[in-house]
């Protein structure tokens, strides 16, 4: 009796906002589907954590090598108490943000320059192609020689990765703008600056947003690799340090924090995208 009541209650809740019973049913169906996906995702995560924890306790896996959730949790608490984890995370986020912002702005400006000058874009094309396909990480040791083993090298490392990606993606976006839209605005007598402002830039906003999303990830990779090589602070440094002194709890905790930080940064950029692409709704 109470069970039927509960199901009815749930159905009513899921179908909220329906303008007719059929519409409510349709809405409930869609929301139920979403709920199922979400619930499964959560279950999967919990199962993974449980398996890890129980498996480690039962020595199915060796917690000395793989650590285990409870240890990670305690390590995190300890590091939160003396704020060290926030300090390291803060440094990594700072480095990532800096290289992300500089890479995005400089890369976009260079893309504008390439769009503006057909001649130079053709001259520079092979250089960009080669730079784009070079694994920039290989340049890391050189940066240390050029710039010393500090934050400068780390940011430069991340910047080389993010700037090239930005140039390539944004410039390609510019090139793909419908030439008829440009013709249209020229019928009103638009000059080149106006074509850039009124057509090319706004039409490329979706590509630029996609570039931003790729860019956060790229900057992050650059920063972490940089920290592996030279740092005395940051999440990358913690991971390497934990590995070197065989404190896998520390390394794992840092990896978990790293994953969460990456997700947050990505979501921030995705929010930005939603704000700019409201006309697509």
């Amino acid at each position: 009796m109470w069970k039927e009541h509960l199901v009815a209650k749930l159905k009513q809740h899921l179908g909220k906002g329906g303008v007719t019973p059929e519409h409510a049913h349709y809405l409930a169906q869609i929301r139920l589907g979403k709920l199922a996906v979400w619930a499964t995702q959560l279950t999967l995560l919990i199962a993974l954590i449980l398996f890890w924890e129980v498996g480690a306790n039962m020595r199915l896996i060796d917690p000395f090598i793989t650590s285990q959730p409870s240890s990670i949790y305690h390590t995190f608490l300890r590091m939160a108490k003396d704020s060290s984890i926030f300090l390291h995370t803060g440094i990594t986020v700072l480095e990532t943000t800096l290289s992300f912002i500089i890479g995005t702005i400089a890369g976009s400006l260079i893309a504008v320059f390439l769009w503006w000058s057909d001649f130079f874009s053709r001259v520079l094309d092979p250089y960009i192609v080669i730079l784009n396909s070079t694994p920039k990480i290989a340049l890391g040791p050189l940066f240390i020689v050029f710039l010393g083993d500090g934050m400068k090298s780390i940011i430069t490392m991340a910047l080389t990765i993010s700037i090239i990606v930005t140039i390539v993606m944004v410039y390609t976006g510019f090139r793909e703008v419908d030439p008829n839209k440009i013709k249209l605005i020229r019928t009103f007598g638009a000059n080149k600056l106006q074509i850039l402002q009124k057509v090319v830039l706004p039409a490329s906003v979706p590509t630029m947003m996609a570039a931003l999303k790729v860019n956060v990830g790229m900057s992050f990779v650059g920063v972490i690799v940089g920290e592996f090589l030279v740092a005395r602070a940051g999440l990358g440094y913690l991971i390497v340090y934990g590995q070197q002194v065989f404190q896998l709890h520390l390394a794992m905790t840092s990896v978990v924090v790293l994953i969460i930080t990456a997700a947050v940064l990505y979501q921030l950029v995705a929010c930005l995208e939603n704000r700019f692409l409201r006309w697509k709704e």
Partner: peptide, 13 residues
């Protein structure tokens, strides 16, 4: 005033 063969409205405006 020149009206092109398609409307080419700017979808972001």
């Amino acid at each position: 005033g020149y009206m092109l063969q398609q409307d080419y409205l700017f979808e972001w405006r």
